[in-house]
Amino acid sequence: MTAKILVIDDDDHLRELVCSRLRRQGYVVHTAENGRVGLRIFEAERPDLVITDILMPDMEGIETILRLKAGATPPKIIAMSGGGHIVGRDFLKWASHLGADQVLAKPFRVSTLIAMAGDLLRDIDARRGRLLGWDPELQPMRDMGQDLDRLFHTHG
């Protein structure tokens, strides 16, 4: 199942860039320009992961994180911040205390963000897999079994 991601940032260019890079990875991506719109999209689309900026006009990232985590099925969250204020760094710490699964200081390499997203979504996949009776950790052994089967059938 393709994972869904919601990107919330008030910077248009940044949002577009992150969004296009994530789509390249095969994710379904929704975007919002502030926390208020973000929460609405979250309710409608139920993304697995929310990537949110912290300092935004209208509803800030901290409040957005609190509301997302207060829901019945909270998503994984990556918080980003450009800092720039003495509290800029502390915001990332707060975000982490309040339930963000990962924090990222701007500027960052998008490949770092993609790796973080991949890690968090793998956790979700693994949990889903176990619910469906499929354990990704066992997959390499199954693959090996199939290889042995093929060998057996070819040469046996």
């Binding site: 940044l14 701007k106 500027p107 998008v110």
Partner: peptide, 12 residues
Amino acid sequence: HDLNNLLTVIMG
């Protein structure tokens, strides 16, 4: 803050 946003886009 704004410069860091800008640099994230340039770097990305």
